[in-house]
Amino acid sequence: MVGGERIMVTLKELPLEDYIVSGHRMCAGCGSAIAARMALKAAGPNTIVVNATGCLEVATTIYPYTSWRVPWIHVAFENAAAVASGIEVAIKVLTRKNLMKQQPNIIAFGGDGGTFDIGIQALSGALERGHRFLYICYDNEAYMNTGIQRSSATPLGAATTTSPSGRVIPGKKEWKKDLIGIAVAHSIPYAATACISYWSDYINKVKKALNFNGPTVIHVLSPCQLGWRFDPSETIKIGRLAVQTRIFPIYEVEYGKYKLNINVTKPLPVIEYIKVQGRFRHLLEPQNSHIIKDIQENVNLQWSRLLKLCSIG
């Protein structure tokens, strides 16, 4: 099969079993834990997981405990895609030599630091070589594992411990990197954004991605209560606001063809998203109002560009 038709799954059809189980030490209300748990529910037990160094890796495998019920390997921070490449070719050749019968899915998980920054070269190499695997970037928009340092996925204006809001500089000065744009530039079969708050869209995208005979990328927004500074109970709400303000559009690109999956026809102003997170608190001060204006303008611009790519409007 070359392409995946959308296999819509309802909550009641999802397996009872978890393949990443309780007892892990991700923070209470962690969005990334939700992202991993949903992905594994979609993929099922016939899956090998490669995990880049990061929150998900450390908090789920504190020796002698592991939360994983699928074969799992962590090697280093920047090389999850390269490790996955080796696994994929090994399966190919061992199958050819009749030394292996299983044909497992391969999912590589990397945070935004392990994907946008230090892992981008290994990811690019693996995408170019065309290995059959799914790369899931769980994006919590900073290096959360090491204590909230800025990454190239951190949005403009956000305060982190290395892009603090100071007397002179009001948080991060640069826009967020376009990961899916980079992935699509490799002419891979499938790339998509998702947000944990839209479970159906995300889970079905994982299922769909695993059906392609080639590399696929899912960029899933995973709000972080600790780094974004909101109440742990609000994780899903914050993700929903990111989508409903059009700050994080939900779309997919199949063989180069863009499709908007969630059309936000009545967007909320970005301030609704900004004002509920501590990392943006300084933007509410009068001297920084122009930054909010810039963010809104950029969101409008990016949205209209996306609509064009999707041949809408």
Binding site: V75, N79, V83, V89
Partner: peptide, 15 residues
């Protein structure tokens, strides 16, 4: 860096 990383993945598969 990726060469050895891929070798690790393949070796962990038993190749």
């Amino acid at each position: 860096h990726s060469a050895l990383s891929a070798c690790i993945g393949a070796s962990a598969m038993g190749a």
